[in-house]
Amino acid sequence: MLTIALAVGCGALVGFALGLIGGGGSILATPLLLYVVGIEQTHIAIGTSALAVSVNAFGNFATHARAGHVWWRCAIVFAAIGTLGALAGSTFGKAMDGERLLFLFGLVMIVVGAFMLKPRQPTNAAPHDTNLKTCVLTGAVALIAGGVSGFFGIGGGFLIVPGLILATGMPTINAVGSSLLAVGAFGLATALNYAQSGLIDWPVTAQFIIGGLAGGFAGMAAAKRLAGSKDMLSRVFAVLIFVVAGYILYQSRGAFLS
């Protein structure tokens, strides 16, 4: 019962963060599964978190789609191409030693925290023409974002949102909404790859998802009331990410010192 409560509670925390601050909110899923819920293997924690984050991302995506925030053509193309990168990245991730992968994960958390310290500014840039250069750039950014997401089992929204803006020139709110299709697709591809190797804890996944969906609704409701404080909330969350990253690097330091 304690494990169930911890899994639901951690899922709710991640879902709340996703709904409240968007990109970067899912980065704590794997550390919470390892150090709070008590999953012992790094790869199982990554596979489990990838599936849970995928389901939560699709749930948030539906909300943005109903609000008209999704550029469907760009979202579908980006998700389709990036999923190939996620499959390749997750294959490499499975093959790496768990402790080394966890150490690298801690470094990625620092990068995510740095991204979140920078306020997200709305952009009024005109959409780019759909020419060969734009298509190639979109495909390249999608492959990179998908590869990183698959390798570490993270949502990757902190990469996908600026990537969509860079490749297409879409406004920030549309990039956030459209990115969630890619986050969901990348997470699902990663989870399926890990599931083939038996690296998903299914009961914990279900509990994490239940908590995440409830937390996501609460987070989106809070985001509407705290819209003016979003940058400050992101900075506070970034500090938390730095602390957790430091703990992960300390715990897994032996992977690179040995």
Results as ranks from 00 to 15, higher is better:
Leu240Gly: 02
Lys224Asn: 14
Ile81His: 11
Phe105Asp: 10
Gly254Met: 10
Pro171Val: 03
Ala7Ile: 07
Phe208Gln: 05
Ala255Lys: 09
Cys10Ser: 15
Ser234Met: 14
Thr134Phe: 01
Ala80Ser: 15
Gly219Pro: 02
Gly150Arg: 13
Leu233Arg: 04
Phe58His: 02
Gly38Ala: 12
Cys74His: 14
Thr48Arg: 05
Ala50Glu: 02
Leu18Asp: 04
Val183Gly: 07
Leu20Pro: 02
Met232Gly: 12
Leu33Met: 13
Tyr194Phe: 15
Arg66Lys: 15
Leu192Phe: 07
Asn60Met: 05
Leu166Glu: 05
Leu240Val: 10
Gly15Asp: 00
Leu226Pro: 10
His128Val: 04
Ala167Trp: 00
Val148Leu: 10
Val148Pro: 05
Ala86Val: 13
Ala125Tyr: 09
Gly11Cys: 04
Val239His: 10
Ile160Arg: 04
Ala221Trp: 13
Leu34Gly: 09
Gly169Ser: 12
Ser49Arg: 06
Val236Phe: 03
Ala167His: 00
Leu226Gln: 13
Ile144Tyr: 04
Gly187Ile: 00
Arg66Gln: 14
Lys118Ala: 01
Gly216Thr: 11
Pro119Glu: 05
Ser258Arg: 12
Leu137Ala: 06
Leu84Gln: 10
Gly139Glu: 03
Gly82Ile: 06
Thr3Asp: 03
Phe217Lys: 14
Pro119Asp: 02
Asp231Ala: 15
Arg253Trp: 06
Ile173Phe: 07
Ile44Met: 11
Cys10Gln: 07
Leu2Gly: 00
Ala140Asn: 04
Leu18Val: 11
Gly22Ile: 11
Ile27Asn: 07
Ser197Phe: 07
Gln196Tyr: 12
Ala218Ser: 03
Gly211Trp: 11
Leu199Val: 00
Met170Lys: 08
Phe151Trp: 05
Arg100Leu: 15
Ile21Ala: 02
Ala221Thr: 12
Ala227Cys: 06
Gly150Asp: 11
Gly147Pro: 01
Leu84Phe: 15
Ile160Gln: 06
Gly89Ala: 12
Gly147Arg: 01
Ala140Thr: 04
Lys94Ser: 12
Phe217Trp: 14
Thr168Lys: 05
Tyr250His: 14
Ala88Asn: 08
Asp231Ser: 15
Gly215His: 03
Ile209Thr: 09
Phe103Trp: 15
Gly211Pro: 13
Ser197Met: 07
Ala142Ser: 15
Leu180Cys: 09
Arg66His: 14
Val243Thr: 10
Gly187Asn: 01
Thr91Ala: 14
Gln207Asn: 14
Ile27Ser: 08
Met116Leu: 11
Tyr250Val: 08
Leu2Asp: 02
Ala175Thr: 04
Ser178Arg: 08
Asn131Ser: 13
Met1Gln: 06
Arg235Glu: 00
Gly15Tyr: 00
Ala195Asn: 13
Leu240Met: 04
Ala182Pro: 03
Trp72Pro: 01
Met96Glu: 13
Thr91Ser: 15
Val244Cys: 01
Phe151Gln: 00
Arg225Pro: 06
Ala79Arg: 13
Val244Thr: 01
Thr205Gln: 07
Leu84Gly: 15
Gly169Lys: 09
Ala142Gln: 09
Phe105Met: 11
Leu117Ile: 07
Gly139Trp: 03
Ala222His: 11
Val243Asn: 08
Phe158Cys: 02
Ala222Ser: 15
His43Val: 08
